[in-house]
Design a protein around this nucleic acid. Sequence first.
DNA 1: CCTACCGATCGGTAGG
DNA 2: CCTACCGATCGGTAGG
Lengths: 216, 216
Amino acid sequence: MATPARDVRTPVRPRRPRGLRTRRAILRRAVALASLEGLESLTIGRLAGALRMSKSGLFAHFGSKEELQYAAVEAAGEIFADEVIRPAAGLTGLRRLRVLCERWFRYAELRALPGGCFFTAASLEFDDRPGRVRERIVELMEKWMLRLERTVREAQEAGEVERGVDARQIAFEIHALAMGANWRSRLFRDPAAFRTARRAIFGRIDQIATAGRRRR
Amino acid sequence: MATPARDVRTPVRPRRPRGLRTRRAILRRAVALASLEGLESLTIGRLAGALRMSKSGLFAHFGSKEELQYAAVEAAGEIFADEVIRPAAGLTGLRRLRVLCERWFRYAELRALPGGCFFTAASLEFDDRPGRVRERIVELMEKWMLRLERTVREAQEAGEVERGVDARQIAFEIHALAMGANWRSRLFRDPAAFRTARRAIFGRIDQIATAGRRRR
DNA sequence: CCTACCGATCGGTAGG
DNA sequence: CCTACCGATCGGTAGG
């Protein structure tokens, strides 16, 4: 099959295709809105209005509301990876665990999204709604929990964490305390929420560390 | 002003007025549905359908959707009081703290509502929606957090908890770990969630207790 | 990417 | 407590 010859006026390195740029702009706004109002309250009409597009123009990018929600979860996962996972990529052991936690706090403290942690809200909103959106949220949260657990276990194998510690248990505790910070911060508009949660989490990490406490 | 004479056939102890009984039946169903799908997704039409009533018949009890939501929060608060607060009413100190926690777990483990803890879901759903419903959720959650805090402080004054412990900090940690159990249980359908959270919470209480650990 | 439209459902009202 | 209805908005489609 012959491919059609390129028009000479087409730039050699083509700009990102228009459709993709629009799609990304839509999703950025969708994730921000969903962090505030929830994934289900994010209606196509209001999202289109906020972007000054027609409903059908926006709709054409996704084909269904469920696909829009799914794509928003995926986009939120990318933000989470950029803000939390990747900054800890080169590290290991307890240092890595502490950086993951600290980056999570930065991510949740209004720096990334206006409504706080997207997944805290979305996973409680969708925990009883069957479908692809829920399944994708479950996958991403499972990955995050396993990442925490694995990091604790690696620190343990490196001798930084006491032998008897249950890595899965610690992963649960860290995540629960982090979500609790998001909850208290958003519900009570309490700026002390993240300070309290940092104390709890870093205190817990110090407890399980070998060679006494307060080592950093 | 003369009150009209009672009809002789009216029973001496009058049955609960019909309207009130219907209202309670509506709210029981509303709280159950809201625990599953959220307070906002609870529409008047579907709630009426589930109760085999007309929309307007149901609507007449509340006057607006916001009033229905407010009344549902109030009804959920009553369930919470019955299931969690009152069983610990006669107790003090660490015993009281442990019973409050254990009753919370029983309340959240599907015993009271099909969707788990109503307030965990509702407080994250409404944390960014202004209005009376949010304000009432805030009040009830504040009351609960202060109750936990006060209980820790009383245990401290009774010498059951170490002097240096920050009661407010412990209240936060307990509540965060409990919410985490609800989150993990609902999202992953993980029956181990509550066992893990119990370990975390009762372990933490043992840590702050005077006279060594494992005292019960 | 748009205008113009669909049937269904939303919260809420009139009138009984 | 009901039937019958309102305008607005929902997700989605036709056709360009």
